[in-house]
Write a protein that binds this DNA or RNA. Structure first.
Length: 906
DNA sequence: TTTCTGCATGTCCGT
DNA sequence: CGGACATGCAGAAAC
C-alpha cells in the first residue's frame, strides 16, 4: 500500500515527507538535489531511479551502490511508520505532531499520485506548522519545525499568500537535499548512530536555517487562463480537466517583478551574499503537452534575472523553459532546436513547416525576430528557432550555455534570457593535488564528494543549484555528510586545503551533469566509466601528467637515441595514484600516499610507483605498516606540515615552469629535460625524478599513448602553438637533444676545422675576397641563414639557431659551451664564426666544389640544397624525435621562413 | 566556394 | 521500444 505522510522530524528541526514504495517525486516539488544527476529539478529522475525493495529505498536501479542511494539509507534518521507517521530514529519519543492523514489517489495520468489533503487537515497543518503558503510542494515552518509536503490540491484550500515550491530557492534545494539525504532510510537500518544523528540534526538545523534565508516570493498559482496567450484557446478540455484535478498541471508560477523579501518565522534575514536564489520553476502547465516537460527544461531563474527581465514594470514574469545550447544550437547555422514539448506548449501553434516569425525580447530589452518553425521528423516534429545566430552572438553564448524562455504577463511577451555555463574545468581546478583527508575529520568532508563520479556529479549538481551559496553552507553540509556518512568512504581525493580553509565555494557548475556527459560523447556509446576513471577524467591535463605511470607488467624496451636512454613501452601509460613527495630538511626524500582502504598515510620509498589503487597490504617496504590496523604514520600536525612542504614544492614547480626560457640559471639539461618529460619540474629539489617520472615512451607518429591520442583540451590534436605540458615537454626534449647533438658535432667540427682550416684558407683566399665585395649586408645575413644547407648537416642546426637569433634554452650549465652567457663566446659560436663565412663565401661564389672537398657529403646543387634545407634537417631530426620535431612549431616556422628566404634569394 | 536549407539518421533517454 | 533531439549530409542558393 502506498501512502505518504507528512511528518515532523524531531530533533526540533525538520519536518518532511516520506514517500512509500512506488512513489515517485515526479513533480519534483521538493526540489531535492539528486546526488546522481545533480539537479534539483531532476528529482523525478532521482526518485525514479530508486527501486523499492523490501527494506525500503535502498536500491537504485541505475546507480546501485552509489552514495546516492547508500548514503541516504545510512544517513537516514526517520523511520516511516505504517500508520502514516514517522518517528525520529534518534529521539522518536519527542515526535511532536501527529501524522497527518493524507489520502492518495491515482491521478489521471496514472503515473503519479494525487494527494488530497482536506481543508481541515491543511488548516490544521497550517496552524501547527505555520504554513505560509502551500501549493505544490510546500514549505512550512514553525520554530524549527519545517515541513515539505506535496499536497496537490491544497491550493484551493489554502489562502494564497506566498508560495514556495515549484519555484524553490536554491537554498531550499540544498536544504531539502540534506533533509532527504538524512531522512530517507531503510526500515532495517534505522538504529544506527543515534548520537551522530542528533548531532547531525543540530547541524542540519543550522544548515537549514541558513538555507531558509531565502526569498520566498512566489505567488500562488494563477488561473490557467492567465497563462499562455498562444494557447488559451488551444487547451483541450481533457487536459483542462486533468489540470484542474491535478495540481501538477495547474501551476502557473507568477513571479513577482519585485519579489518581496519574505521574513521567515525564525526572523532570519536574508543574506544576500549567502544565497543566490535560484528559482526552480516548474513551468506553467499550459498549452499542448504541457505537463510533461523534462525537468532539464524547467526554468531556473534567479531573483536577479527576474528583476533584470522585469525591470521596473509591473509585469509578471513566467519562466517557461530553458535549454542548454548544444553545439548545433550555438553553431553558425543559427538554428536553435527547441524542445518539442516546450515549443508546443509555450510558442504559438504552427501548422506549416514554415512556421511564423516570433518576436522575442532579450533581457536587455532588445527584440529579436526569429523564425519559429518545425521540420517533419519521424512522424513527429522538430521545432527550431531560426536566425538565432545574432542573438546568440550578442549574448556571447556558446555550447553549454543555457537560454531561458520566459513570458511576461499579461503582455504575453516572450523573453529570452541566458545563463552562461560555468567552466567545467573549475571543478577540475578544485581537485587537489595531494591533499590529506581521512585523518582530518573536519576536512574530510569534501573528499567524499569527490570520491567517485556519482558523488562528484551530485556535488556539482548541488553546486549548480545553489550557485552563489556561500561556502558556509558547504562547510556545514560537508560536515554533515562527514559526520553522518558513517558508511561512506571518505578518502582519496579531497578539496584543496586552501579551499577548505579559506572556505572558497566550489565553483558552480551550471551544466547538468547528465547533459554534460551526454554532450561529451553524444556520438559514441554512453560512457560508462568507472568512478575512479571518472574522477581521473576530472583532473586537469596537467594534473594527469603527474599521475601517468608506466603500464604495469609491461617491460620497457631500452633504446638509445643519440646517447640518450629511452624507455619505450608498447602500452600507453596508466594512471597512478597520487602521492606526496617531500624533501626534508635533511635532504631525505619521502613519498607519502594514502591507503585506499583505510585512508591512512604511509611512507613509501621515493622511487616507488604506486598503482592507482593501493592499500596498506601492499606496503612491502614497511611491514609494521602493512596493515590497515597499523596506526597512521602522520598525525594531523605532521600532515599539515607535509602538505605545507608539498605546497611549497608545487609553488616552486610553478615558478620554475614559468621561468623565462632564457633563464640560464636553470638546472642542468638533464633536469630540464626530465622536467619536461615529467611535466614537472623535476629539477626542483623536492621531487626525485625517478619518482615522478612518467617514463613516458617517446612520442612517435602513430603513438597511441594517452598523451598522444588525447589532446589537452579534449579536442583535436595538439596544435603547433600548444603550450601544454606535453608539447612543452617534447619541445624541450627536442631542443635538449639537438643541443647535445650539436655539441658533439661541434667537437667533431672543431677537429676537422682545425685540420683543414689552413688548407682552405690557402686555397680560396683570393676567391673569398673577391666574392665578399658583392655581398650586401642583407645578403650576408641571409647567407648565414642559407649557408647551413651547404654545410655539413651536423652544423646546420647550429647555424639555423644562430641565424634565428635564438638561444638554446636548454643550455647545459655544466657544460662549458652552454654555460656561456650572453656576452660570452661559446665553443660552438666560435666554430661557427670560424667556419661559416668561409663556407658562405664559397657557396655564394658557386665554389661548391671546394665545399665538397671539405665535406663528406657533396653539395652539387646549391639550389636544391637550399630548397631542401629544412627538409634535410628535419630528416635528420627525425632520427631522434620526429614527432617532437613536428610539434616544435617555432622550429618549423623558422624553417619555413628560412625556406622562403632562400627561395626568394634564388 | 561558401552558405543555407531541409531532411535523414544515429544516439540517448523516458516509459 | 519509441520519441526526442543533436548533428551529419546532400542539394540548392548565394556569393
Amino acid at each position: 500500500m502506498e501512502s505518504r505522510s507528512c511528518m515532523n522530524v524531531t530533533c526540533a528541526t525538520l519536518t518532511t515527507i516520506r514517500w512509500r514504495k512506488g512513489w515517485a517525486l515526479r513533480s519534483g516539488e521538493f526540489a531535492d538535489l539528486c546526488d546522481k544527476c545533480g539537479s534539483a529539478y531532476e528529482q523525478s529522475a532521482y526518485c525514479d531511479t530508486f527501486h523499492s525493495n523490501d527494506s525500503g529505498w535502498r536500491e537504485c536501479t541505475s546507480c546501485d551502490k552509489r552514495l546516492h542511494c547508500g548514503c541516504i539509507a545510512s544517513m537516514s534518521q526517520l523511520e516511516l511508520l505504517d500508520t502514516g507517521g514517522v518517528s525520529c530514529i534518534s529521539c522518536a519519543r519527542n515526535s511532536g505532531l501527529q501524522p497527518i492523514a493524507i489520502n492518495e489517489k491515482p491521478n489521471l495520468s496514472g503515473t503519479s499520485k494525487v494527494i488530497d489533503i482536506s481543508a481541515q487537515q491543511c488548516t490544521s497543518l497550517a496552524n501547527q506548522l505555520n504554513v505560509r503558503g502551500m501549493q505544490g510542494g510546500n514549505y512550512a515552518e514553525n520554530d524549527g519545525l519545517r515541513c515539505w509536503f506535496k499536497p496537490h490540491k491544497i491550493e484551493t484550500d489554502v489562502p494564497s499568500t506566498e508560495m514556495k515550491p515549484e519555484i524553490l530557492p536554491s537554498v531550499g534545494e540544498l536544504g531539502s537535499t540534506l533533509i532527504s539525504q538524512f531522512h530517507f532510510e531503510s526500515n532495517g537500518s534505522s538504529k544506527a548512530s543515534k548520537a551522530e544523528s542528533c548531532k547531525a540534526d543540530t547541524e542540519i538545523r543550522d544548515i537549514y536555517e541558513s538555507l531558509a534565508q531565502t526569498n520566498l516570493s512566489m505567488t500562488l498559482a494563477t488561473p490557467i487562463g492567465n497563462s499562455n496567450p498562444f494557447h488559451s484557446s488551444v487547451v483541450d478540455e481533457r487536459e483542462q480537466s486533468k489540470t484542474s484535478s491535478l495540481l501538477l498541471g495547474s501551476r502557473s508560477r507568477h513571479l513577482l517583478p519585485k519579489p518581496p523579501r519574505s521574513s521567515s518565522g525564525t526572523g532570519l534575514e536574508v543574506n544576500a551574499g549567502m544565497v543566490s536564489q535560484i528559482r526552480v520553476a516548474r513551468p506553467p502547465a499550459e498549452g499542448r503537452g504541457r505537463n510533461q516537460l523534462l525537468p532539464r527544461y524547467w526554468p531556473r531563474i534567479t531573483d536577479q534575472e527576474l528583476q533584470q527581465i522585469s525591470g521596473d514594470s509591473n509585469s509578471t514574469i513566467v519562466p517557461l523553459f530553458e535549454k542548454m545550447l548544444s553545439a548545433s544550437d550555438a553553431g553558425r547555422i543559427g538554428r536553435l532546436v527547441l524542445p518539442k514539448a516546450c515549443a508546443e506548449a509555450y510558442f504559438p501553434p504552427i501548422s506549416q513547416p514554415e512556421g511564423l516569425p516570433l518576436r522575442i525580447q532579450d533581457v536587455k530589452g532588445k527584440e529579436w525576430m526569429f523564425q519559429f518553425r518545425f521540420w517533419p521528423n519521424n512522424n513527429s516534429r522538430m521545432y527550431v528557432l531560426e536566425g538565432v545566430t545574432p542573438c546568440i552572438q550578442s549574448m556571447q553564448l556558446q555550447a553549454g550555455d543555457t537560454v531561458t524562455f520566459s513570458r511576461m504577463d499579461p503582455e504575453g511577451k516572450l523573453i529570452m534570457g541566458f545563463r552562461k555555463a560555468t567552466n567545467s574545468t573549475a571543478i577540475q581546478e578544485t581537485l587537489p593535488s595531494n591533499m590529506p583527508n581521512g585523518s582530518h575529520s573536519s576536512e574530510t568532508s569534501y573528499s567524499g564528494v569527490y570520491e567517485n563520479l556519482p558523488i562528484l556529479s551530485g556535488y556539482s549538481g548541488l553546486l549548480q543549484s545553489q550557485k552563489g551559496c556561500s561556502e558556509t553552507h558547504l562547510n556545514v553540509l560537508s560536515k554533515k555528510w562527514n559526520s553522518a556518512g558513517g558508511d561512506m568512504n571518505w578518502h582519496n581525493i579531497d578539496i584543496p586545503e586552501s579551499r577548505k580553509r579559506e572556505g572558497l565555494p566550489l565553483p558552480p557548475v551550471l551544466v547538468p551533469e547528465k547533459k554534460r556527459t551526454r554532450n561529451i560523447g553524444s556520438k559514441s556509446k554512453r560512457l560508462l566509466i568507472d568512478s575512479q576513471d571518472a574522477l581521473e577524467l576530472k583532473l586537469t591535463w596537467e594534473e594527469a601528467q603527474d599521475l601517468l605511470r608506466p603500464p604495469p607488467a609491461v617491460k620497457p624496451s631500452i633504446v638509445m637515441i643519440e646517447d640518450q636512454v629511452f624507455e619505450e613501452y608498447e602500452e600507453p601509460p596508466v594512471f597512478g595514484k597520487r602521492s606526496i613527495f617531500v624533501v626534508r630538511s635533511a635532504g631525505v626524500n619521502e613519498q607519502w600516499t594514502q591507503c585506499d582502504s583505510c585512508s591512512k598515510w604511509r611512507k613509501l620509498p621515493v622511487d616507488v610507483l604506486i598503482p592507482p589503487k593501493w592499500t596498506c597490504v601492499e606496503n612491502l617496504w614497511d611491514q609494521s605498516r602493512s596493515s590497515c590496523a597499523a596506526p597512521n604514520e602522520l598525525n594531523p600536525r605532521e600532515l599539515d606540515n607535509l602538505l605545507r612542504l608539498n605546497k611549497e614544492f608545487k609553488k616552486q614547480r610553478l615558478a620554475a615552469s614559468q621561468r623565462p626560457a632564457l633563464d640560464h640559471e636553470s638546472s642542468g639539461l638533464d633536469a630540464l629535460a626530465n622536467a619536461a618529460i615529467l611535466g614537472d619540474d623535476a629539477s626542483d629539489s623536492g621531487r626525485t625524478p625517478v619518482v615522478t617520472t612518467t617514463k613516458h615512451p617517446r612520442h612517435r607518429p602513430g603513438c597511441s599513448c594517452i598523451v598522444c591520442i588525447q589532446p589537452p583540451s579534449g579536442k583535436g590534436k595538439h596544435k603547433p602553438t600548444c603550450t601544454c605540458n606535453v608539447c612543452m615537454t617534447v619541445k624541450r626534449r627536442f631542443k635538449t637533444l639537438m643541443m647535445r647533438k650539436k655539441k658533439r658535432q661541434s667537437e667533431r667540427e672543431a677537429e676537422i676545422a682545425q685540420r683543414n682550416q689552413l688548407t682552405w684558407r690557402t686555397k680560396d683566399e683570393s676567391e673569398v675576397d673577391s666574392t665578399s665585395r658583392h655581398l650586401t649586408p642583407v645578403d650576408g645575413l641571409e647567407n648565414e641563414v642559407r649557408a647551413p644547407s651547404e654545410l655539413d648537416p651536423r652544423t646546420q642546426d647550429q647555424v639555423a639557431e644562430a641565424a634565428k637569433g635564438q638561444l638554446d634554452l636548454n643550455c647545459q650549465p655544466d657544460r662549458e659551451e652552454a654555460q656561456t652567457g650572453p656576452n660570452n663566446v661559446s665553443m660552438t659560436s666560435l666554430l661557427e664564426e670560424a667556419n661559416l663565412p668561409l663556407e658562405t663565401y664559397l657557396k655564394q661564389n658557386g665554389l661548391t666544389s671546394l665545399i665538397s672537398e671539405q665535406q663528406t657529403n657533396s653539395a652539387s646543387n646549391v639550389q636544391a640544397q637550399t630548397t631542401n634545407e629544412s627538409e634535410g634537417r628535419q630528416n635528420e631530426d627525425c632520427g631522434t624525435a620526429s614527432v617532437i620535431h613536428e610539434q616544435d612549431s617555432s622550429h618549423e616556422d623558422n624553417s619555413g621562413q628560412d625556406k622562403d628566404q632562400n627561395n626568394s634569394l634564388s
